[in-house]
Design a protein around this nucleic acid. Structure first.
Length: 439
RNA sequence: GACCCGUUCGUCUAUCGGUUAGGACUCCAGGUUUUCAUCCUGGCAAGAAGGGUUCGACUCCCUUACGGGUCGCCA
């Protein structure tokens, strides 16, 4: 039975690299009908706040990565009050004490001031990493690998020790973590050997870098998972994109749902080289996912962004939304794509307006307005027909008149289909905007 | 500095000794859409360098260069 875990420490935000680590652990567990565990490594009291913990849960939930065991899950209910049931390291101290005694009894610990150091076995340690292959670190060189402190002077335990104990206690079978832990692994292997236990299998995945190849830190664009929903990304798009960073489906397909990712995932297909974060492609992936969801779902997801811009949500909202669904890459682009359909005070592109006014075909706009004003019925087709009538009567092609009309109605060069604009705006507003354009 | 991992178009990647080195993002050019977008077609663009091994190397080995990681009483 496969058991994987994601063990973040609360830092106030969920890093995109951490999110991908979580994703790979989750995918591996789901793929093999295993168990995915969330464990909070909150031993650093200074950073351990309620908000910091919540950021992890929120990020995981938004991404759609549910955990079988961990805080707030059913697995946490086995025995709510005992340390062995907690998935917070800060509450598991009695367990660590017991393991500490074992190392003491095995004569592998010695005091350094009030702290305790673990005495490494001075020999080469070879590990079989599922991603990196065979890696050997030589522990005979003491200057390179000094004995490590596992219990501080204040009595608290360090990461290496508690991490290993928890993985053992929680019967983790596969540790999938960032490559920054590769050099820690032989230390963990030594600890496990001294404890007389069998180690899990390890898979170290390459890090995610900024577009310029530098290390991605908290402030860098795209670093915090919590920023993605604010920017108008769909969670499935973000999951899809980060899965592509360092992993390949070995096919020409790139757009996958969570379910499809589970189906195709394998540790063998993970790369060894670090990947750079390409924000443009991330947006493209988002656009692909927007195209896949229903108009109703798109409308719901876009609504908060529209409301944030204080745009009135009228009865024409569904039609408005449908008109721009295929035109945006981010949900946050929706308000500026639809504002001219909902209000008369939307900002316009002066440059485009100047260009349209200089267009000779703009001279036909008044005639078009008057013709439209006389129409009894109004629809996208009837309005378009009016354009054809005016254009041909004046020796112009209908297509040539469409640019000036578009600009007169929207104030921009790009936007929804003209027919959609006609039907959403209605006859009165269309005529009014055409009339006022040249004034 | 020492140790570890890595290096295919600008970016993400395919290739597991024999390919005109394929796909995607971006960009450019056409086409469809009487408009915008979508979409379609085409184009630009890559094996870090040098040595081996081999009939044959992007693929295996070595060296160098470059990138990343690790060397805490942080996690």
């Amino acid at each position: 039975m496969i058991r994987t875990r994601f063990a973040p420490s609360p830092t106030g935000y969920l890093h995109v690299g951490g999110a991908r680590t979580a994703l790979f652990n989750w995918l591996f567990a789901r793929k093999h009908n295993g168990t995915f565990i969330l464990r909070v490594e909150d031993t650093d009291a200074a950073r351990n706040t309620e908000e910091a913990r919540q950021a992890i849960f929120d990020g995981m939930s938004w991404l759609g990565l549910d955990w079988d065991e961990g805080p707030q899950s059913s697995g946490d209910l086995r025995s709510p009050s005992s340390p062995s049931s907690s998935y917070y390291q800060s509450q598991r101290n009695p367990i660590y004490d017991a393991y500490f005694e074992k190392l003491l009894a095995a004569d592998r610990l010695y005091k350094d001031g009030d702290a305790y150091r673990f005495r490494f076995d001075r020999k080469p340690i070879t590990m079989q990493d599922l991603v990196c292959g065979e890696v050997t670190i030589d522990y005979r060189d003491e200057s390179n690998t000094p004995d490590m402190v596992i219990r501080r002077s204040d009595g608290s335990y360090v990461f290496h020790f508690v991490n290993v104990v928890d993985d053992l206690e929680m019967k983790i079978t596969h540790v999938i973590r960032g490559e920054d832990h590769l050099m820690n692994t032989p230390k963990h292997l030594q600890l496990i050997e001294a404890l007389g236990s069998q180690p899990p299998q390890y898979a170290h995945i390459p890090l995610i870098l900024n577009a310029d190849g530098s290390k991605m830190s908290k402030r860098d664009a795209g670093a915090a998972v919590g920023d993605y929903p604010k920017q108008g990304f769909l969670s499935e798009a973000v999951v899809n994109f980060i899965a592509l960073l360092g992993w390949s489906s070995k096919s020409d397909d790139e757009i996958f749902t969570l379910t499809e990712l589970i189906d195709r995932f394998s540790l063998e297909a993970i790369n060894r080289a670090p990947a750079r974060f390409d924000f443009e492609k991330c947006k493209w992936v988002n656009q692909q996912h927007i195209a896949k969801i229903s108009t109703e779902k798109f409308a719901d997801l876009a609504k908060p962004f529209v409301e944030a811009e204080i745009l009135p949500i009228t009865e024409s909202y569904p039609a408005v939304i449908a008109a721009v669904k295929e035109k945006v890459r981010l949900l946050s682009e929706v308000p500026s794509a639809i504002d001219f359909l909902l209000t008369d005070t939307a900002p316009v592109d002066e440059e485009t307006i100047a260009k349209a006014k200089a267009n000779p075909n703009s001279a036909l706009l008044p005639a078009l307005a008057e013709l439209m004003a006389t129409l009894n019925d109004w629809s996208a087709d009837i309005a378009k027909e009016a354009i054809t009538t005016v254009a041909t009567a004046n020796g112009a092609k209908p297509g040539q008149l469409m640019f000036p009309v578009r600009v007169a109605l929207s104030g921009r060069a790009h936007g929804p289909d003209l027919g959609d604009i006609f039907s959403i705006l209605g006859k009165e507003k269309t005529v009014a905007r055409l009339r006022s354009f040249l004034e």
